[in-house]
Amino acid sequence: MKKIDRRKFLKGSLAGGVVAAATGTTKKAHSAYSFEGYPDSMGVLVDLTKCVGCRTCEAACNKEQGLPAPDKPFDDMSVYDEHRHGGLKRRTSEKAYTVVNRYDIPEKGEPVYRKFQCNHCNEPACLTSCFVNAYTKTKEGAVIYDPKVCVGCRTCMIACPFYVPAYSYSSPIDPVIKKCIMCYDTRLKFGKPPACVEACPREVMTFGKREDLIKIGNQKIRTTPDRYVNHIYGEHEVGGTAWMYLSSVPFDQVGFDTKLGTQPIISYVKDFLAIVPMVLCIWPALFTGFHLLAHRKNARQQDNQTVKSKKEEGHE
């Protein structure tokens, strides 16, 4: 691991600030730039209409990622009746990078199950919020992180619009962020689909190039319009995500936030953040200059006055 000492870190951030201030201070330059994902990045299309809530994906994730034993067996369906504080459904944790939740929709005869894990955004809020650069968006589409760099500040947990990153609260000495990495280390890197995708008996998840998945999603909606609502969740949400969803019921009824908008989270703070280096670097120099100028006039006046008084003294 590369070691960065404090001096280097400060030097680096100062230099970065100067470059940022010098290159991009106009508003136009910032809003014109947006990252829409790597061209051949992979993704997963989740068809909620096919999920029967068997939890095989959870077991596969546990095995692949070498996670600790679960509190209940993976074939125990009583977990669907569990609720967290405030009646919220199960969420990802340091022991489970993916969970399935059940939603009882009154109009529908049967429950709808929804698998939940990191959506691997094109422009991840976790990545942009991380001040130690622990996160990486790989060209395959996965959002991975280096736990050795993570300082455990939990900023990414707050930044994530899907509340995905979990925290190893059980480790008081060295707590770090824990989340789905799309099986990058063991599978995705080698062209294999994530473990959950391969394990799913119903093939709820389709793995492929993100752009192909959008085509497949649209084709499914077009050929069987009665089966789906006309929307692929994640195609545009927060700038697009690698994991996308098809549903038979409106997405807000099955735990999706439909008010996130289509802008990457970073775009809401980009303009403000662009000003920060400018303020930090230019303002001190500028105002020191003003101060000196103002002071110079005073000093000159003082000088003049002393010369005058000396002259007057000489006349007397």
Partner: peptide
Amino acid sequence: FSAEYLAVLEEDINLFHLEKPGLQGAFH
């Protein structure tokens, strides 16, 4: 979802059945 099969899908630009499930998916 093997790289080999995904490549086969990609080669056939006129293929309609892009969403054809695998064997396990087809059964279940």
